[in-house]
Simulated assay, not measured.
Amino acid sequence: MRIMLLTAGTRGDVEPFVALARHATSRGHDVRLALPDDAGAPEGVGTVPLGLDARRVLSPAGRAPWALARHALAEVRPAMRRMLAAAVRETVAFDPDVVVHHPLVLTAPMVADALGVPRVLVEFAPVATPSARFPAAGGPTATRDLGTHNRSTYAVPRAAARLFEGDVARAAAELPGGRRPSWRSPSRATLMAVSPVLLPRPDDWPEQVHQTGAWHEEAPAASCGPVVTDFLAAGPVVVASFGSMATGDASARGAAVVAAARSHGLRVLLVTGWGGLALPPEHRGPDVLAVPSVPFDAVLPHATLAVHHGGAGTSHAVARAGVPAVVVPVTADQPFWAAQLHRQGVAAAAVPLRRLTAGALAPAMGDALTRRGRAAEVGRLMRREHGVQRALDVLESL
């Protein structure tokens, strides 16, 4: 089977697709993965770029309304336009038997219809599949149960997608004949790459929604290097990462994490990522190691506690490792996951970003440390899931 995989976004949106691509290739399928330009070229996977630099798109020069508006016009809109057109162009060139896509790839339905092949939507958090049991993960009310009004919150992501309707229409020039199909067929299936341990399946999702569990590499974890390995072995460690979230004062956040960890006698592995965390000179010491990135699957099993931003990928990786957490959500689906991890007993109540100080973080760390037993239990259950295998079983059944 020829499988076209289309994803857009940050590391948490790319790595699961890479895991699926590798597993599908190992089972004899011909796979093409279209991904952001700054994601690199993962080994063992045939890839094509989408003309999108996720880091530039997510890094405005300022937070003032005028700066954000200028960034949207100068960076976001052109990048989305390039990505939507490239997704069509590369899919047509590959001529797949099935199109599997991230919700941000808004032209996937159009090109699948034009080629007459089935389309499969992938969700890493419930944003496109409505439920009355909880609100949309990316909406403004993601942490509040609105009861009978929960379903209405899923209109927010749909409205955001309509902002790019003109760019979708322009991308039709890349289709055979250069015209958009007059119909839109529904997705043949939805792959909800979410652990049922963290989010039990609601009773109102339709049958074509397959909750596979999270997608991750099932091969042995990559080495994290001798420096990190020795640091992890020297005593209890907090692993702190804000991933691609670079909003605000990174040094102040790093200082808060280090000071709060020291109040509990914990050492700190500070993963600076795209600049969301930084280590101020006055907080350096033998009990702190700052690194730009690490393979989480290699590091987290040795952690006592994690402090993170609540992205879907990080939330699942920390929970799968059996590590309790303090979540400091920033945007998008992160408040949803922060609340869900707390409900499942594996994280303290979320610490708002604007209140991130050592004084706020220290008691949250203390609360999280009392949850080690529950975190270990959840980790054991999640490690029994084989998300990429189940996802590929669904695709093969098409």
Results as ranks from 00 to 15, higher is better:
residue 329 P to H: 11
residue 278 A to S: 12
residue 11 R to W: 05
residue 54 A to F: 06
residue 157 P to I: 01
residue 145 D to L: 11
residue 113 D to Q: 11
residue 385 E to G: 05
residue 87 A to S: 15
residue 149 H to P: 04
residue 7 T to H: 11
residue 109 P to W: 13
residue 230 D to V: 04
residue 210 H to P: 10
residue 310 G to Y: 13
residue 209 V to Y: 00
residue 183 W to K: 02
residue 222 A to V: 01
residue 398 L to D: 08
residue 187 S to L: 03
residue 302 H to P: 03
residue 314 T to G: 01
residue 136 A to Y: 12
residue 276 G to M: 01
residue 143 T to Q: 03
residue 298 A to T: 04
residue 187 S to T: 06
residue 250 A to W: 09
residue 343 R to H: 14
residue 96 P to V: 02
residue 142 A to W: 10
residue 142 A to D: 11
residue 160 A to K: 03
residue 386 H to V: 08
residue 209 V to F: 03
residue 247 T to H: 13
residue 233 A to N: 08
residue 392 L to R: 13
residue 285 G to P: 12
residue 129 T to A: 12
residue 47 T to H: 09
residue 53 D to P: 05
residue 204 D to G: 03
residue 250 A to V: 05
residue 363 P to A: 04
residue 195 S to W: 10
residue 305 L to E: 01
residue 355 R to W: 11
residue 67 A to G: 07
residue 233 A to I: 04
residue 369 L to K: 10
residue 180 R to N: 07
residue 166 G to W: 12
residue 36 P to R: 02
residue 291 V to H: 02
residue 339 A to I: 04
residue 346 V to G: 08
residue 313 G to I: 05
residue 111 V to L: 11
residue 60 P to T: 07
residue 114 A to P: 10
residue 196 P to V: 01
residue 249 D to A: 01
residue 374 R to A: 07
residue 44 G to S: 03
residue 168 V to L: 00
residue 254 G to D: 06
residue 124 F to Y: 12
residue 44 G to N: 02
residue 317 A to D: 05
residue 343 R to M: 02
residue 274 W to Y: 08
residue 378 V to K: 00
residue 202 P to A: 00
residue 143 T to G: 02
residue 151 R to Q: 10
residue 144 R to G: 05
residue 271 V to F: 06
residue 277 L to E: 04
residue 325 A to H: 13
residue 309 H to R: 13
residue 151 R to S: 13
residue 313 G to S: 05
residue 186 P to R: 01
residue 150 N to V: 03
residue 106 L to Y: 08
residue 389 Q to K: 09
residue 70 R to Y: 03
residue 233 A to G: 09
residue 387 G to T: 06
residue 280 P to E: 02
residue 146 L to H: 09
residue 31 V to I: 00
residue 285 G to H: 11
residue 297 D to H: 05
residue 229 T to S: 15
residue 333 D to T: 00
residue 344 Q to Y: 01
residue 67 A to F: 01
residue 142 A to S: 15
residue 12 G to D: 12
residue 235 G to M: 06
residue 19 A to G: 07
residue 377 E to H: 13
residue 211 Q to D: 07
residue 72 A to F: 12
residue 63 R to Q: 14
residue 207 E to R: 15
residue 338 A to C: 07
residue 48 V to F: 11
residue 4 M to H: 10
residue 215 W to D: 09
residue 214 A to W: 15
residue 309 H to D: 13
residue 320 R to H: 04
residue 49 P to D: 12
residue 119 R to D: 05
residue 300 L to C: 03
residue 70 R to Q: 03
residue 166 G to R: 15
residue 72 A to V: 07
residue 243 G to P: 06
residue 332 A to W: 15
residue 61 A to T: 15
residue 193 A to L: 08
residue 374 R to E: 11
residue 356 L to P: 04
residue 277 L to V: 01
residue 335 P to Q: 03
residue 47 T to R: 08
residue 273 G to C: 13
residue 96 P to K: 09
residue 331 T to I: 14
residue 286 P to N: 10
residue 278 A to D: 04
residue 30 D to S: 14
residue 345 G to Q: 08
residue 363 P to H: 12
residue 57 V to G: 04
residue 100 V to S: 08
residue 309 H to E: 08
residue 368 A to Y: 07
residue 211 Q to N: 09
residue 200 P to M: 08
